[in-house]
Amino acid sequence: MKLRKVTVAVAAALVLSVTAAGCGSGGGGGGGATTGKKITVGIKFDQPGIGLKTPDGKYTGFDVDVATYVAGQLGHKPGDIVWKEAKSADRETLLQHGDVDFIAASYSITPTREQKVDFAGPYLLAHQDVLIRADDDTIKTPSDLNNKKLCSVTGSTSAQNVKTKIAPNAQLQEYGGYSECLTGLENKVIDALTTDDSILAGYAAQDQFKGKFKLGGFKLSNENYGIGVQKGSALKDQINTALQKMVADGSWDAYVKKNFGPANYHNEPAPQIGVIVS
């Protein structure tokens, strides 16, 4: 496992007397001059445990909790937040066009993306993994996926990564969405579902799936989730300060347990701001 430092003014961010840090309280509370002014935040709308818009119009998930906390430290109450869907293919465009103030949407920090936008964080280290049935004792190592029916969404790089690098004899099944894969897994039509472990844990933590699935714990890749901001934005340093406080006051641990705990998700410790695990 290799570490690289991203180009962020981490030390400066931690010693800056950011006004926003004094505006809010933990958990997204706000106060201060900017309270009442809207802030637009990009999240996923379709990832349970990460970012989900529920049928009654509410927003739930780890990224939602993190974003609410950060907005609070920037002086915005939860009611000030305008949530905007940030699909994977649209994230850089949303930031570049100024359609959102920041994005927290299972947004892995990569060199290619860093050419277009800036990242605060990382705030979560996830890994590509597989989800299998809770009573399945035949898949204990990544190589056990050979000759198994492996599912992911159409166009996903996760399944291809397993098939080309880890288990070339896996029988790849591509479905339109993760929910279809879960149904297939539950009905024993497929043997395993692969994507980021945080996303898998979020799905498995849903009430209808509790106790039915388990994570393989294989850590097939490192995914450093960051908060995306416009290139050159001063928000980066302010958000880094907020993330440090979130970890220090215990909110980060509480959000992990709340959103991923039911799936027995063995999360990595909170990552160090500005340090990318490759």
Score class of each variant (00 low, 15 high):
T40I: 09
T40M: 02
V41Y: 06
G42P: 03
G42H: 02
K44S: 14
K44E: 13
K44I: 06
D46G: 07
Q47H: 13
Q47L: 12
Q47V: 15
P48G: 05
P48E: 03
G49K: 13
G49S: 13
I50M: 12
G51F: 03
G51E: 04
L52G: 01
K53L: 14
T54W: 11
P55L: 07
P55N: 04
P55R: 03
P55F: 12
K58L: 10
K58P: 02
K58Q: 11
G61L: 05
G61S: 08
G61H: 09
F62Q: 09
F62I: 04
F62M: 09
D63H: 03
V64E: 02
V64Y: 04
V64F: 06
D65N: 15
D65Y: 07
D65C: 10
V66N: 12
V66I: 15
V66M: 13
T68Y: 06
Y69G: 11
Y69H: 15
Y69P: 08
Y69T: 15
V70W: 06
V70L: 05
A71G: 05
A71P: 06
G75V: 11
G75E: 11
K77Q: 12
K77F: 11
P78Q: 00
P78D: 00
G79C: 04
G79D: 10
D80I: 01
E85T: 13
E85M: 12
A86I: 07
A86N: 07
A86P: 03
K87F: 15
S88N: 09
A89T: 10
A89P: 01
A89D: 09
D90I: 15
D90M: 15
D90W: 05
R91T: 01
T93P: 02
T93M: 13
T93E: 11
T93Q: 15
T93H: 07
L94V: 05
L95E: 00
L95H: 02
L95P: 01
L95D: 01
Q96D: 06
H97Q: 14
G98K: 12
D99K: 11
D99C: 00
V100P: 08
V100N: 09
V100M: 12
D101H: 05
F102A: 02
I103V: 12
I103Y: 01
A104C: 12
A105L: 08
A105Q: 05
A105R: 00
S106P: 03
